[in-house]
Computed example of a mutant assay.
Amino acid sequence: MLAFDESDRARSKSTKRIYKVYKQKHKGSGGYVNGQTIVLLLLVTSSITVPVGFFFYMPDPALKQWDKEDKRLKKSGIAKKDRPIKPERDSAYPTKTEIALGLLKEFKVAHSLIKFKGVLADALYGEKAFEQPMLLPQKL
């Protein structure tokens, strides 16, 4: 079986030079910290779990800024028609679902002889894209 998971790694409040670091909500303190999010693809067997792929996730800064401004304008009573429209997502910042699908496709191409029974992921990845026939487990 293959499984997806993501892991937030808090770094520090002042670091900005680490790859794909962005401001995250720190679950322990309730404050904010700079950190990284890693999306993992794991091969799970009855005896061992092995990471077989990973990718660093980072939210689109333009969308994040737009969302922050939109919430501020909405709170101040500005009508939706008078607020700026949502910008297009930059392909340099894929969503976690897009990352997961890419990792799955890469694994399938690189390890075509490995047959897996299913793909396990939490509700975050519960999108229609995971139901495509190409990605469904192969019948045994």
Rank of each mutant, 00 (worst) to 15 (best):
L104C: 10
K20V: 06
S76I: 10
E88T: 15
K108W: 12
F56G: 07
F54V: 01
P84V: 02
P94T: 02
Y57L: 03
K117L: 14
Y19V: 11
A121T: 01
F54P: 00
V50K: 11
E69R: 13
A121Y: 03
A92M: 12
V52D: 01
A10S: 09
R83N: 14
S46C: 10
P133T: 02
K117Y: 15
S12Q: 02
E6L: 14
T15H: 04
G28L: 05
M1R: 06
A129H: 01
T15S: 07
S7T: 13
K64W: 04
P84F: 01
L63M: 01
G118C: 08
R17C: 11
P87C: 11
K139L: 14
D70K: 06
P61F: 13
A92Y: 12
V109I: 15
K27V: 10
T49D: 07
I114A: 03
G77A: 09
D70L: 09
K27M: 11
M134C: 10
T15G: 06
E127W: 04
K128E: 02
I38F: 14
R9A: 11
E131W: 00
A110P: 02
K23F: 05
K74A: 12
V50Y: 11
D5C: 03
R9C: 14
F54A: 05
S91P: 14
D122I: 04
D90E: 09
F107Y: 08
A123W: 07
I38R: 11
L136M: 03
A110F: 04
I78D: 15
L104K: 08
